[in-house]
Computed example of a mutant assay.
Amino acid sequence: MSLGETAETRFIDTSQASAARMYDWLLGGTENYEVDRQACSELLKIAPSTQQLARTNRDFLRRVVRDLAAEKGISQFLDHGSGLPTQDNVHEVAQRVRPGAKVVYVDNDPMVLAHARTSLDDNENTMVLGYDMRRTEDIRHATEGFLDWEQPIAALFVSVLHCLPDTDDEDDPAALIKRVAGQLAPGSYMVVCQLVSDDPAVRQGVTQLMEDVTQGHWGRVREKHEVRRFFDPLEIEPEGLMDVIDWKPDSMPPPLHLRPNDWVEWGGVGRVPV
Rank of each mutant, 00 (worst) to 15 (best):
S119K: 11
P48S: 11
Y33L: 02
P260A: 12
K224N: 12
P48V: 01
D148T: 02
Y23M: 00
R134L: 05
Y131R: 13
V272K: 15
D122C: 03
G100S: 14
H91F: 02
T30S: 14
S49K: 05
P253G: 04
T126N: 06
G100W: 09
T207H: 09
D166V: 09
R140V: 10
L195F: 05
A174C: 09
Q51G: 13
P260T: 04
W247E: 07
F146W: 13
L84W: 00
G100I: 02
Y105V: 02
M210L: 12
H225K: 15
I177P: 09
P249K: 10
Q38C: 09
L195I: 07
G205H: 06
V180A: 11
A116Y: 08
D109P: 02
A181R: 12
L3K: 13
V106R: 12
V274W: 12
G145A: 09
V35P: 10
N261D: 15
G267M: 08
E5M: 11
P165K: 13
W263S: 15
Q183Y: 14
R10N: 11
E170D: 15
S49W: 02
D243S: 02
Q52L: 06
T56W: 06
Q204S: 15
V97C: 08
H80F: 14
S75V: 12
S41M: 12
R259T: 03
L84E: 02
F157N: 09
P200M: 08
H162R: 08
R117C: 00
L68W: 07
K102V: 00
F77T: 03
I12E: 14
K102Y: 01
Y23T: 00
G182F: 05
M242N: 11
D122S: 09
H162K: 10
D122R: 15
F60S: 10
P85A: 04
E265D: 14
D168S: 13
H225P: 10
D67F: 04
A39N: 09
T143D: 13
M22E: 00
R220D: 01
R179D: 14
T126R: 11
L256K: 15
A19C: 01
M252V: 14
D262C: 07
V191E: 12
V272P: 04
E235C: 06
Q95P: 04
P152D: 08
L156M: 11
G216A: 07
V103R: 13
M210C: 10
E124D: 13
Q51D: 04
R63L: 03
R98Q: 15
A175N: 14
H80E: 01
L209E: 05
E34L: 12
L27G: 00
E8W: 07
E223H: 12
W25K: 09
D88L: 07
E265C: 14
R55D: 00
K45F: 01
T207V: 07
G100C: 06
D88N: 12
M190F: 03
F11K: 15
Q183K: 14
G4H: 13
N32A: 01
E150L: 01
T86C: 03
V180G: 12
Y33K: 08
R21M: 00
E8P: 01
I74C: 05
A114N: 07
E150Y: 01
L147W: 05
L61P: 01
L156C: 07
T167Y: 05
M133N: 05
